[in-house]
Simulated scan of single mutants.
Amino acid sequence: FGIDIFVDQSYQREVFSYDENVTNPIFTWNLTNFSTLYNYSYTSNTFSSGNRNWVLKVYPNGYGVGKDNYLSLFLLSENNEINYVKATLRVLNQITSRNVVKQVEGWPNAAENGWGFQEFITLADLQDKSKGFVVSDMLQVQVEITAFSKHTPIN
């Protein structure tokens, strides 16, 4: 009676940990001519934070349950990496310091393969000039990445 054992050489063990020393943690994106944006969604230029490449994605008239009532905002990994991320998303108030701020933490959601909210800020708040979110037809959105997962192979 004998047993043959095969070991798959492609199997690697990893240590899961956080990198909280994020370089260039804040990225601000100015969406000019906001009232005339007619596309379904807009994606920012690529920015680097923590030696990884990211983009912000905005749906000016909402996405999913936010459609037609909210602006939707997401942080995406440019390379579609599946990582655990902690970040703060903001729609900046350009008159006062009353920004709309929402925290994301976790694995990317299935709908966008990123982190964010379908109901980030109401369109009514954006259209109300006295609220200060859209000034001179410009909206400012921002992300601050505070931590993300890193995988260290164990030899």
Rank of each mutant, 00 (worst) to 15 (best):
V58Q: 08
L139G: 03
S77G: 06
L31E: 04
V22D: 01
K86Q: 09
E20S: 10
Y42D: 08
D137T: 06
P25G: 05
T152F: 05
T43Y: 06
N51T: 12
N79F: 12
R90Q: 06
F27A: 03
T32C: 10
G116T: 02
S49R: 01
N69K: 14
W107C: 13
S72G: 06
N113F: 14
K67E: 12
L139T: 01
N61K: 02
N33S: 07
K67R: 11
K150Y: 09
V65L: 13
V104C: 00
M138L: 12
I3D: 14
S97E: 10
W29D: 03
V15H: 10
S72Q: 02
Q140C: 07
Q94L: 01
K150G: 07
Y11P: 15
F148I: 05
L73E: 00
N53Q: 10
Y59M: 02
V65G: 14
I145A: 04
L89P: 00
K131T: 06
G64P: 02
L89K: 00
D125H: 07
T152L: 09
I26S: 05
I5L: 14
G116P: 05
K150W: 03
V143T: 04
N61A: 07
G66R: 00
T122F: 03
F148Q: 05
G114V: 04
N39Q: 14
R52D: 07
R13E: 15
N53L: 09
I5G: 13
E112P: 06
Y40G: 14
W29Y: 08
N53V: 10
Q9D: 15
G50W: 00
V91R: 03
Y59S: 03
N80Q: 14
V141Q: 02
L139K: 01
Q94G: 02
V85A: 00
V65N: 13
L139Y: 02
N80E: 12
T146L: 07
Q94D: 01
S97Y: 12
E112C: 09
P60E: 00
S149P: 08
D4F: 14
N61H: 02
Y11H: 15
T36Q: 11
Q12I: 15
I95Q: 09
E14T: 15
D4A: 15
K57L: 10
Q94F: 01
N51K: 15
P60K: 03
V100G: 09
T88R: 05
V58N: 02
I121H: 01
Y38S: 15
E144S: 11
V58P: 01
S35A: 06
Y70G: 03
G106R: 09
V55T: 09
V55G: 10
N39T: 13
T122Q: 01
S49N: 05
E144Q: 09
